[in-house]
Computed example of a mutant assay.
Amino acid sequence: MTTAFDPIDLSGLALSNRVALAPMTRSRAGAGGVPTALTAEYYAQRASAGLVITEGVQPSPVGQGYPDTPGLHSAEQIAGWREVTDAVHAAGGRIFAQLMHTGRIGHPVLLPDGLVNVGPSPVAARGQVYTHEGPKDFVTPRELTGDEVRATIGEFVTAARNAVDAGFDGVELHGANGYLIHQFLAPGSNRRTDEWGGSPQNRIRFAVEVAKAVVAEIGAARTGIRLSPGNPFNDIDEPDPEGTYPALVRELDTLGLAYLHVMEVGPIRDLVTTLRKNFSGPFVLNPETEGPTGHDALALIEDGTADILSFGALFLANPDLPARLRTRGPYNTPDQSTYYGGGAKGYTDYPAL
């Protein structure tokens, strides 16, 4: 019987176990979106994960949606990430960078002067974003032109190349949680009538073209993608994920990606099972609930539902989570007040066993 503690070959990359660190925004980057020494310490502490997936990293200045998040579009950022990847590799870990363009999510005060939030259509998300000036309502994004859609794909490509130059083992394209790729997938945020909108086949085009372009640049074995079918986060309206995601995954499967990472939100296990059947490569699942210990989720490896499980808050608070899962605890409790921003408290000060 396969367990979460068995090694796995991730498209040629040997992983020591099947427990992954899920991507989590922590808003602790330094000036200019540059990772710090504290960032390197944080990820190195969690290098016992079979795979470390970073927080969302903006591929371009206009892709930033939150304060103090890191980028992969400047020489300084690449150098900062090199310190992180070196630390993780020295600790025996494997690390992918999650490329996250937030699209309509964010606010112009978070962007360099003159830039405004963009999206597939000029449809504002309901809700607010935290800024250093206080909470701000989401704004109506400027609709990307056809040429700008292609240019945005190019931004993902450049960031992927920068990630490899920074020492990452690969990249994960963030197609979940209501950010730009997800905005193209969802009919509520994508009202386009050109080749990028309308039918499910047109709405999946942006995700597929980003993946194709990144694969052409850095290789399929270094490229993964994360999806969250039907997830309403960030005011996503996606009433028929069953009509969209199997077609998307079938297209992605032809590319030979390193993995497909699905975030399970709501009662979609049947759809998760369908997507797993439609994808021939390694399947990573972020289960609907990891629970206070994560033990129940481990059965999803044993019964073949997933090849790898990713854990969020549980890994945030327990830097040596694979060891704790193996011994069934004990576990540290996450401090939600320190999730975003700040320094070492709630970031690198959680004790190991």
Results as ranks from 00 to 15, higher is better:
residue 7 P to G: 11
residue 9 D to Y: 02
residue 9 D to V: 10
residue 12 G to Q: 02
residue 17 N to E: 11
residue 29 A to K: 00
residue 33 G to R: 08
residue 34 V to T: 12
residue 38 L to R: 15
residue 49 A to L: 07
residue 51 L to E: 04
residue 63 G to N: 03
residue 65 G to S: 10
residue 66 Y to S: 10
residue 68 D to M: 00
residue 76 E to A: 15
residue 76 E to V: 14
residue 84 V to L: 01
residue 87 A to F: 08
residue 95 I to M: 12
residue 98 Q to G: 02
residue 99 L to Q: 02
residue 99 L to G: 01
residue 101 H to F: 13
residue 128 Q to D: 13
residue 129 V to C: 12
residue 129 V to F: 03
residue 132 H to Y: 12
residue 140 T to A: 11
residue 146 G to N: 13
residue 147 D to Q: 10
residue 151 A to D: 14
residue 154 G to N: 11
residue 157 V to W: 01
residue 164 V to I: 14
residue 165 D to A: 15
residue 172 E to F: 11
residue 173 L to T: 01
residue 173 L to Q: 13
residue 181 I to C: 09
residue 182 H to Q: 14
residue 184 F to N: 08
residue 203 R to V: 03
residue 205 R to Y: 06
residue 208 V to M: 00
residue 209 E to H: 08
residue 211 A to I: 02
residue 211 A to L: 03
residue 219 G to Y: 09
residue 222 R to L: 04
residue 227 L to T: 05
residue 231 N to R: 09
residue 233 F to W: 13
residue 240 D to K: 03
residue 241 P to S: 04
residue 243 G to H: 00
residue 245 Y to C: 03
residue 252 L to C: 00
residue 254 T to W: 02
residue 256 G to V: 07
residue 287 P to K: 11
residue 301 I to Q: 08
residue 301 I to V: 14
residue 323 A to G: 02
residue 325 L to I: 12
residue 328 R to H: 13
residue 337 S to C: 01
residue 338 T to Q: 13
residue 342 G to T: 06
residue 345 K to E: 12
residue 351 P to E: 09
residue 352 A to Y: 10
